[in-house]
Every structure is written in C-alpha cells, then in structure tokens.
Design a protein around this nucleic acid. Sequence first.
DNA 1: GTTAACGTTGACGTTAACGTAAACTATAGC
DNA 2: GCTATAGTTTACGTTAACGTCAACGTTAAC
Lengths: 144, 144
Amino acid sequence: MTEPTHFTISELAKEFEVTSRTIRFYEEKGLLSPTRNGQHRIYDKADRVRLELILRGKRAGLSLDESREIIDMYAPGSSNERQYRFLLDKVNNKQAQLERQIEDIQQLIVGLEEVRDRCETALKSNKGSSEKYPMPLAYRRIQH
Amino acid sequence: MTEPTHFTISELAKEFEVTSRTIRFYEEKGLLSPTRNGQHRIYDKADRVRLELILRGKRAGLSLDESREIIDMYAPGSSNERQYRFLLDKVNNKQAQLERQIEDIQQLIVGLEEVRDRCETALKSNKGSSEKYPMPLAYRRIQH
DNA sequence: GTTAACGTTGACGTTAACGTAAACTATAGC
DNA sequence: GCTATAGTTTACGTTAACGTCAACGTTAAC
C-alpha cells in the first residue's frame, strides 16, 4: 500500500477537518492552485503541504495574508542578489515578529500558572471558601 | 512626580497606540467597564491592566472572546470547591492550547530558518543566480 | 460669547474568513 | 434510464473587530 500522490478536495477536507468550501476559498485567495481534471480539482503533494501550512498558520493565530507571506518565502521566485537580500530581510522580520508573539503567549501562560497555583493551594487547604485571592502579578512586568 | 492613578480614554489610546473607538468597542463587548465622571469615562489602574491584557492577547493572535476567557480566569468570581475545580480545568485546557500554539509558531520559525540559511549560502557563493533552491523540509514532520 | 479641544452616543460602512443555498454537471451503480 | 454521489460555479448571508462620520455636550482659552 503505497502513499497516495494525488487527492480530491473532499479527501483533503476530511483529512484536515475543514470543509471543501474552505479549501476553495483558499484557492480564491491565491493560496492554492491545484490542477484540473476537466472541471474537477486535483491536489498533489505540494498542494497538500501548502494547505497544511495554511492551517498551521491559522492555529498559530495568523491571518491568511500573513500565512501567504510566509509560504511565499518558503517558495522563492527569482534569485539574484538583490532578491536574496530582500527575502532575507523579510525572513528576519517575520521571525522576529513570530518570536515576539511567542513571548506574548508565554506571558499569558505565566498568568495562568499563577491562577492554577492559587487554585491548587485553595483546594489543598480543603476549604475553598475563605481564601484570599489577589489579582495575578504576571502582567506587572510589561514593556513592549 | 508620582505615578498617575487614573486615565482618560485618549491617554490610554495614546499610550497603547489604539484609537478611542477601539477602547469603547472593548467596553461594548464587556471587556472593560470604567467608571464615569458625569458622562466621561475614567479608567483606573485595573482597567489599564485589563486593556494591556486584551492587547497582549491580540498580539498573541487570540480573538477578543478568547482574551476575555483568559482575563476572566485571572479575576475569579465565587470560590467554593466546585468552582475551583472547574476553573482549574479551564486553566489547564487553555494552557495546553496556548502551548500547542507556540509549537505551531516554532515550526513556522524553523521553516524560515531554513530559508535564511539557503539565502545566506547563496549570497556567500557570491553569485546568487545559479543556485539550487529546493523546497524547505521543515514541514515534513507534522502530526497534530 | 464663541471657538477649540476633548468626549459622548448612535449608526452605518468595511474587511476577513468562511457558511449556506441554488442550480448545474459528470460519473457510477442498479 | 434513473438515482445517488461528488464536484462545480454563483451569489448572498454572517460574524468579528473595528473605521468613519454625524450630531451633540462640556469645559478652557481668548
């Protein structure tokens, strides 16, 4: 049983738990461009990878435009020195932005961990009714 | 010069580089509830912190509803054991979700790092025109 | 007292990311 | 030949997160 090399829209839809409409929408927006068999769409492995990346970007909280930007960096076009330098610049900026995003998420997690600690100590004291429950401190050191 | 303790809407707008409309919108959505001096809004430090959290959530790629969820966990309501257990559960779920989100972002970064490496070697070979430039590999190990 | 600066409440407009429904085509199974 | 299944296009609907007026109220300055 060898790996499939081409896919229909509903196969991809099922695999990635999105609707066909969604996949067609991504095509409208220029994020996918499957070939056609007559009027039906046929997706190859590269298309599948692109869809995967789009959805990863979505889970990451990116807009479709942002995901497109990144995917386009993955698949470079022309290749003279100026283009490389330009791409390099975009890559570095994007990476910096993503790293800032990670920091923001980590700060949110720190806040949640404080909440959890307080919950747990409150539960361990075995009378969760008369506890002091001050505001979290996690959001005190903020700069950005 | 002691730290200010209250703020007008435009002060906050300026500090956080959003419009007053945006801040009022957050209030409409129940994310803020400043007091009033007559008809004007007055924001105290707690309000400011909440705004900060909302914007951090935004940078993190969360929707307003998701940010609200998290903020509401920070500021707990009643406190019997059942409530604590329930909150604890929500906190843990949210944390897991945020950590998955971080992983997705990190994968995107890995892809960008590959691109950058190729850019840099291409530039170092000092003739950026005749290089092979295969598709990135970063998105090969994917499970989720 | 009027103009400027700041704030307020509607209310309608806009963009992104799809959902939903209608009307049609093509193929496979009976 | 007919129905079921999968796919297609076209088009209008929806929700989130604001933007953009318009019309109005107040204090502060001149």
